[in-house]
Write a protein that binds this DNA or RNA. Structure first.
Lengths: 103, 103
DNA sequence: TCATTATTTCGTAATTTTACGAAATAGTAA
DNA sequence: TTACTATTTCGTAAAATTACGAAATAATGA
């Protein structure tokens, strides 16, 4: 990502791409779908049974979703409960809609 | 992407991720926004002025969007006119909405 | 034909992503 | 304390992504 010609990507383009990138792997789509369907929270142990990856890889994907701001984790005894970060989830939804609705 | 445990990602998850991945770079968000706003078509020469990358890199991004099915190019004299692939664009919009609306 | 224009493909390098198993961390329960 | 469970972090390897400039391709126009 260079800034040749003095140009740069707009904040909107950067943020939209960041959200899209976070959704750009089937494991992460699965995780987000599961979390938004649970309408509550879910541990990584509850996810691992339905997804064809190692636990450590799942952890890596969760970390990326956290980094993108789409989920958050909360320690609950020996578990970590992951939830959708509603604020950013709504933001991502908006940016997605704007792109598709051409605003 | 392994198929450990005999599990696999669903077609829906794979396709959603594929579309999202195609949107996962600011240059490609820019391109799609431009194309959907032009409401018609646009050549790579018309794009290059507003985006901070080399022509060859732009070409590479166009190729990826074509691969994902989101755009298509048509030779028009000495130019290539790129347009949104409306069918897949609508499909991507739907899959995105479904994910965010938790269906 | 020759030069020009628009764009892609090639070759290549740096970085990032994805994946795994092993080891580490941290809480619970005996 | 010790063992157990849940999960992450570490180390690492393979593959994919991103980027560039140079060269190739293909159509137009002189």
């Amino acid at each position: 990502m260079s800034a040749a010609k003095g140009l740069n990507y707009s904040e909107k383009h950067l943020r939209t791409a960041q959200f899209a990138k976070a959704l750009g792997h089937p494991a992460r789509v699965f995780i987000l779908e599961k979390l938004s369907q649970m309408n509550g929270c879910c541990t990584s142990g509850e996810m691992i049974g339905d997804i064809p990856i190692a636990r450590s890889t799942l952890s890596q994907h969760l970390k990326e979703l956290k980094f993108a701001g789409l989920i958050q984790g909360e320690i609950e005894g020996p578990f970590i409960k992951y939830c959708i970060n509603q604020e950013n989830w709504a933001l991502a939804k908006d940016m997605c809609q704007n792109l598709f609705d051409n605003k």
